[in-house]
Design a binder for these strands. Structure first.
Lengths: 164, 164, 164, 164
DNA sequence: TTTT
DNA sequence: TTTT
């Protein structure tokens, strides 16, 4: 269908370390379990209530998968953007099952680490520095820069790589 | 959890007329089935391929539910914004099932009709006029107006209702 | 125009403490200066480059304004959602000027604090606890709950307030 | 800054045909003027009021620029996604001016035509067919497909190009 | 003016 | 399973 949009935006925390699998190509595919929650005051009881939603996230995007593998850990807070996808599978009894996931495809999606650092677990891996990543870093070209182009004049420098 | 975001944005078409149920309060709850699709060229075969994703949408937001009930029909193109929610249920065999839906809660979410008209099915109801709705219309207050407030001066008119 | 959407989503850091003004009604209106930046590697020089964009944010939404006033400080990282708006004004020389802002209207927009705490400046105000806020908290009603409604059965509890 | 997001989502209509300029490279850069509007009922007068916001959009993304040039016309309804950017320039009197634009960079942003057709102006070009475009079409690789992978088994076909 |  |  022309003219359709399928976008999910999450800010949440990882419930576990990333689960990394390898494609036959050697490319990593990373599965994340991400929690979002909201709290509100119950009208009747006046009590504070909370609801947590768990999201299954699958990262096929190579760059983002590598970053997720390297820098994300249980508890990390992330911003991510992907598309909804439901896949059908059969359990061991041959029962049909459906799983809905947020998918970050190749060349699509976005992932941002929102922790200043991610070493809160005291992880032995030196890593966990704050990293900002997006699916386009490294795909060459692209820039707009040019803070300064004149009025009617049209001149923005287009010489560098990936402005943002 | 403080600081979380759970947002889905879809632009797609209704696969069927809205399914309307009534709460005991009489408020409508509307279920929509929304298709998004994408097409791409297969690398190997060079063929054009298409993939359609179907989304279950549940509208608890009263205003949006009423609009959906009144104006949406099979085939209508909509913009909508909601939150992901997975609920567990048992089928007739007592098997656990999970369904993930995009939920438009009370006072949350957004719904926009993107068709100039919605009578493509030749519906008998004269309706289907283009309607723009959002979850806040009618909740009083709100304005920004003031196309014109001066430099350091701070004066925006705040007298009308719901600016957008 | 029916069927339009005007939405800005930012995750960035405050360049200064919130600037609070009072409406004649006593309601606060909060102005924020928010920085987003991106970095990339220059294709030619191979150098790392960075570009920072500054955004003017105006919060008319009462609840969010109060939270911003109370909890946000210079350096805080926030998620926010608003609408683009350009207003015209005259400087002291009578020159026309235009300013584009991200506006969080009454009953619209969203603001989330993304810092675990916001006391990095050692602020004297005890505040700065992590707070999660949204424009709808407190506007009564709303819930979907119901983790558990059965197969064809339609029964979700609708008794509490604001589920998320 | 690591961990920042700068995203604008618009659904609106073109106020004029696309304005196309060429870079020295021959690549098109397309400027669009996009209107979004909202209407609400004035609290005091009870009158219906409307506010239209005009957005300047600049498309540096080659693919999207080509599509915009070829298919978009005055009045077309579009979905687009870009980043906010403010640039400074001097008018003929040497006065500093600032212009805020929504920028679709190379390899970033999204553009979707939302009209079934775009010939409402009676344009002479037969064109205006519905087109769905995104910034990644054609950048090779990428797919998730696999409607069907089994339970614990991990096997999705990764052979085609760009699933969405 | 922020942040990394 | 996260986070506050």
């Amino acid at each position: 269908m022309a003219g359709s949009v399928n976008k999910v935006i999450l800010v949440g925390n990882l419930g576990a370390d990333p689960d990394v699998k390898r494609m036959s190509s050697g490319d990593p595919v990373v599965n994340l379990s991400v929690a979002t929650s909201e709290s509100w005051r119950d009208k009747a009881s006046g009590e504070r209530r909370e609801r947590t939603e768990w999201h299954r996230v699958v990262i096929f995007n190579d760059q983002l998968a590598k970053v997720a593998e390297q820098y994300l850990k249980k508890g990390a807070k992330v911003y991510l953007e992907g598309a909804l996808q439901t896949r059908k599978w059969q359990d061991q009894n041959g029962q049909d099952k459906y799983t809905t996931e947020i998918v970050l495809q190749r060349y699509r999606g976005e992932l941002q680490m929102l922790d200043g650092r991610n070493d809160r677990e005291g992880g032995y891996q030196g890593g966990g520095q704050q990293r900002s990543v997006s699916n386009d870093s490294g795909y060459g070209g692209g820039n707009q820069g040019g803070q300064s182009s004149g009025g009617g004049d049209f001149s923005r420098d287009m010489d560098d790589e990936i402005p943002f």
